[in-house]
Design a protein around this nucleic acid. Structure first.
Length: 265
DNA sequence: AGCCTTTGACCAGCG
DNA sequence: TCGCTGGTCAAAGGC
């Protein structure tokens, strides 16, 4: 990332800090009677963090974390347990400065690091989004990237086949899977695999990052003050982030109260 | 000619 | 060890 993007990185860091403060306020003023509201707000803020972190992971962290980045199909790749039992996958590396950021290396895995490792695993899990087809169409909307379909598979128990895509750019490892939802035929589950190593992502990610941080964190902050419960239905073509059911509210709070030692903002 | 989609084959992980 | 399953490969055909 060039010097021209340095100020954008500063904005990202500033907004992430702001988001963290919002999260702390959320935690401070937590009211069990408004758990749904706060859960949603926490998810909104976390969504911004996920996006920002994933973008940053694409540059600095990806270097340090490449060894543990889960593959497109997590079930077949490394998992926290195997990492714990396979120390060679997790080295402690010295601190390094990448694009003006300090990135701590990973500590050797032992039982005490299991919680942090689980959080790391969640943060690195393949990004899954649900997208709705445009009105009158039965295909997912374009996501700003150019993809080439390289396979299709009928998954056991699924009504619709799963489609596999690669980035059209040569030497780019970006992949995605598209699965049409059986219960919602106009909704598609899109799972992104390896991140883009081509120029496409830089352009799109910078735009996405600024939009995400500038609007989502701000939007969440506004809703925080209003205790407003928004409708969970998004307009056509908008993206809804999927939150794994095993991520609890406590987990979200833990993300911010016990900031992982391997990331220094 | 080049790029794309389709589709059956192949391969690797898992139980 | 073997069968099942899902992800990828690669040949063939279309545009």
């Amino acid at each position: 990332m060039g010097e021209s993007n340095f100020w954008e990185r500063e904005v990202v860091i500033t907004e992430l800090t702001k988001g963290k403060e919002l999260m702390l306020q959320l935690q401070k003023h937590f009211d069990p009677m408004k758990q749904d509201v706060y859960r949603y707000l926490a998810a909104e803020i976390l969504s911004s963090y996920d996006k920002a972190m994933s973008l940053l992971n694409g540059t600095a962290l990806s270097v340090a974390l490449r060894a543990v980045t889960p593959p497109l199909n997590p079930g077949r790749g490394l998992n926290p347990e195997t990492l714990v039992n396979n120390e060679q996958n997790f080295y402690h590396s010295t601190s390094s400065h990448v694009d003006g950021r300090v990135v701590e290396g990973l500590f050797p895995i032992d039982g005490q690091n299991q919680d942090s490792l689980n959080l790391l695993w969640k943060m690195l899990a393949p990004r899954t989004e649900y997208v709705e087809a445009r009105h009158g169409e039965e295909v997912p909307p374009e996501d700003g990237f150019n993809w080439r379909k390289y396979g299709q598979k009928l998954i056991l128990g699924a009504k619709y086949p799963r489609e596999y895509f690669q980035c059209v750019c040569r030497h780019c490892d970006a992949t995605k899977m598209v699965q049409r939802i059986e219960t919602e035929p106009l909704t598609f589950e899109v799972t992104y695999g390896e991140s883009h190593s081509c120029g496409q992502e830089n352009k799109n990610q910078n735009e996405e990052l600024l939009v995400a941080v500038g609007t989502q964190v701000g939007r969440a902050a506004g809703k925080l003050s209003e205790c407003y419960i928004p409708e969970m239905v998004t307009p056509n073509n908008s993206y809804k982030t999927k939150y794994p059911s095993d991520i609890t509210y406590d987990t979200i709070l833990q993300l911010f109260s016990d900031q992982p030692s391997y990331i220094h903002l």
